[in-house]
């Protein structure tokens, strides 16, 4: 298993090139993506600051309600980010679905990626009976794919 540990050149601390995430959270994300298909679904998984542990799944409204674009509602964004601040949490995972294409960041995804510390998780729902789930770091326009390690019972989901 490729748990490549290296120092991120942009100074965001140690980056472990793997996303470890509970299967219950993955199931909830996939269910959200399926529910909103063919529109894109989006959301966050918050976790305690500095632990790289996605613990609390938050479905976000796709304010664009589009099959090819997503955008957090600005007021919900503020509310959820404040809530994380109050709880000493950070956005560990930011996810969205692609509903007709592969689970790989588009040029749009890369241009807008504004959370260098987050894992960007993409789910493709283009196949009706299986999902493609992939995770990336997007820092300064550079996309780095990482392994997704799905485990059981790291959190109470």
């Amino acid at each position: 298993m490729g748990t490549d540990t290296s120092v991120c050149p942009t100074g965001h601390g140690r980056v472990v090139r793997v996303l470890t995430i509970d299967s219950a959270i993955i199931d909830a994300i996939v269910a959200h993506a399926r529910r909103d298909h063919p529109d894109e679904a989006c959301g966050v998984v918050a976790g305690p600051i500095g632990r790289d542990l996605p613990a609390r799944h938050i479905r976000m409204e796709n304010a664009a309600r589009s099959m090819t674009f997503y955008e957090f509602d600005s007021m919900e964004h503020l509310r959820v980010w404040r809530e994380m601040d109050d709880n000493d949490e950070e956005p560990v995972v930011i996810y969205h679905s692609h509903t007709a294409t592969e689970a790989y960041p588009s040029r749009t995804d890369v241009s807008f990626a504004g959370e260098p510390g987050a894992h960007y998780l993409l789910v493709s729902t283009r196949e009706p009976d299986s999902e493609e789930i992939r995770s990336f770091r997007i820092v300064d326009g550079v996309v780095t794919e990482e392994e997704v390690n799905i485990v059981d019972a790291t959190v109470d989901a």
Partner: peptide
Amino acid sequence: ITILPAVAGGALGFVAAAAIAGQR
């Protein structure tokens, strides 16, 4: 004052996405 980079993206090409976002 709070500044947050918008969380946005999607499968659409950048130019088309920017146009939609601009209309919104």
